[in-house]
Measured scan of single mutants.
Amino acid sequence: TRVETATETAWISLVTALHLVLGLSAVLGLLLLRWQFPAHYRRLRHALW
């Protein structure tokens, strides 16, 4: 049971790290898009909202 718990903890930390990385890359990508294509971003936002 001790090994299982350790594996579970490792998986949880791995998944958390993955989610953090994905979230950060998504935010960075959005910022980059907004910085590179302001007109396109505004049009996209206008279409979405």
Rank of each mutant, 00 (worst) to 15 (best):
T1N: 07
T1M: 14
R2T: 14
R2V: 11
V3P: 01
V3I: 14
E4A: 12
E4I: 11
E4K: 11
E4R: 10
E4D: 10
T5A: 01
T5C: 03
A6Q: 13
T7P: 11
T7M: 14
T7D: 05
T7W: 14
E8I: 03
E8Q: 03
T9Q: 12
T9M: 13
T9F: 11
T9N: 10
T9I: 13
A10V: 10
A10M: 09
A10K: 10
A10T: 11
A10L: 05
W11H: 09
W11A: 04
I12Q: 08
I12C: 06
I12Y: 09
I12P: 02
I12G: 02
S13A: 14
S13L: 11
S13Q: 09
S13C: 13
S13T: 14
S13K: 03
L14Q: 01
L14K: 01
V15I: 13
V15H: 07
V15Y: 07
V15K: 05
T16G: 07
T16L: 10
T16S: 11
T16P: 04
T16I: 14
A17K: 00
A17M: 10
L18C: 01
L18E: 03
L18P: 02
L18H: 05
L18S: 00
H19E: 05
H19D: 02
L20T: 06
L20C: 12
V21T: 12
V21L: 12
V21R: 02
V21D: 02
L22M: 10
G23N: 06
G23S: 09
G23W: 05
S25E: 01
S25H: 06
S25W: 01
S25L: 07
S25V: 12
S25G: 05
A26F: 14
A26Y: 02
A26M: 12
A26G: 11
V27Q: 00
L28H: 03
L28T: 02
L28S: 02
L28N: 02
G29C: 13
L30R: 02
L30Q: 01
L30C: 14
L30S: 09
L30D: 02
L30Y: 07
L30F: 12
L31I: 12
L31Y: 13
L32A: 13
L32W: 07
L33M: 11
L33E: 05
R34D: 02
R34F: 01
R34T: 08
R34I: 07
W35Y: 15
W35Q: 15
W35D: 08
Q36V: 15
Q36K: 12
F37Y: 15
F37S: 03
P38Q: 15
P38E: 09
P38V: 09
P38N: 15
P38Y: 14
P38G: 10
A39N: 14
A39I: 11
A39D: 15
A39E: 15
H40T: 09
H40C: 14
H40R: 09
H40M: 11
H40K: 11
Y41W: 15
Y41Q: 01
R42C: 08
R42T: 15
R42L: 12
R42W: 10
R42I: 10
R43W: 08
R43Q: 08
R43P: 05
R43M: 11
R43E: 07
R45Q: 08
R45H: 07
R45W: 00
H46Q: 14
H46F: 02
A47D: 03
A47W: 09
L48W: 06
L48Y: 03
L48T: 08
W49I: 10
W49L: 06
W49C: 03
W49S: 00
